[in-house]
């Protein structure tokens, strides 16, 4: 009797669990659906008092109009965002990767001191440093330049910390074999360690890329002129000023997240791994 009851009970909880999951999943997809729907609506339908589940007329001219409208620097801001995200990702991987390897493997008197100094900066929220960073960058005359947008983000303490921890766990025997074959630290790193750590590199790389593409405060502070806007700043300017058609704004937002959603779907495995490691580092 007891077994029968518990079976039925578990079937009921199973159904309850699936219903909750499906409801929550639908709720989480609503904003994406609204984004796509609004991007293809006509301006007058968006402003009408009735809620539309689907656009009464599918307006594709929002997309073409976006790149023809001289008031919206869409192509330029997408290019800026792409340039910044790619260079910062490569930069963080090279700089933090090398630094992490050096801290993990090269015996050096001050290596612990350097490591603790880097780790200590993790305690200071990055955003709190934005006023002094701004003063520094503006003294250098880098306001509204790609240099000002890219260079301060080329070194990341968190990525360095994670790389060091990862390389500490790398099998030492393989490196020793490379040393016997005459490779120095530099050669061992590039020819042996990196090719065998591509999963971890992909994890840190995708996380960095997403963070860089979606960054807001720093590009807002530095990207004063229109030529130096990233796509987030372009969107935000038109959103807060309410100076362009709303339907076109939705289309612009859709264009801005499509590259990331595609990347997300293809690289999800690595992103999950990167998030897990980031979270464990916060412990």
């Amino acid at each position: 009797m007891a077994i029968v009851r518990s079976k039925r009970q578990s079937r009921i909880t199973g159904w309850a669990r699936y219903s909750a999951l499906v409801a929550a999943a639908l709720l989480f997809l609503v904003p994406f659906y609204l984004l796509v729907r609004s991007a293809f609506m006509r301006e007058q339908d968006l402003g009408s008092p009735d809620f539309h589940w689907l656009p009464p007329v599918w307006e594709t001219s929002n997309l073409t109009g976006l790149f023809d409208n001289p008031a919206i620097p869409m192509a330029r801001s997408l290019l800026n965002s792409g340039l910044i995200a790619v260079t910062q990702t490569v930069g963080v991987l090279v700089v933090s990767g090398l630094a992490g390897y050096g801290l993990a493997r090269i015996p050096y008197r001050w290596s612990n001191a350097v490591f603790y100094t880097i780790t200590a900066t993790l305690l200071i929220p990055a955003a709190v440093t934005f006023v002094p960073s701004f003063v520094l960058v503006s003294t250098l005359g880098w306001i509204s330049t790609l240099r000002g947008l890219i260079i301060p983000g080329l070194f990341q303490a968190l990525a360095t910390f994670l790389f060091r921890q990862f390389f500490l766990g790398f099998p030492k025997e393989i490196e020793e074999a490379a040393f016997i074959d005459g490779l120095g630290y530099w050669g061992t790193f590039w020819k042996i360690v990196v090719p065998n750590s591509m999963g971890f590199v992909a994890a840190i790389g995708t996380i960095t890329f997403i963070g860089s593409w979606n960054a807001f405060l720093w590009p807002l502070v530095i990207g004063r002129d229109q030529e130096s806007w990233t796509v987030q700043i372009a969107l935000s300017t038109f959103l807060t000023a309410q100076s362009v058609q709303v339907s076109q704004l939705f289309m612009a937002a859709l264009v801005a997240i499509v590259p990331l959603l595609l990347m997300f779907l293809f690289l999800q495995r690595w992103i999950v791994e990167g998030v897990e490691r980031t979270g464990i580092a916060g412990d």
């Binding site: 929550a24 999943a25 989480f28 997809l29 609503v30 904003p31 994406f32 609204l34 984004l35 609004s38 997403i210 593409w213 979606n214 807001f216 987030q232 969107l235 935000s236 959103l239 709303v246 704004l249 939705f250 937002a253 801005a256 997240i257 990331l260 959603l261 990347m263 997300f264 999800q268 992103i271 999950v272 998030v275």
Partner: peptide
Amino acid sequence: VFFLPTACSYVVAALVWKMSI
């Protein structure tokens, strides 16, 4: 599905929240 919004920026979310929802 739950993880997907992580790829979204705050600006895009703000747009949907402010102008649509």
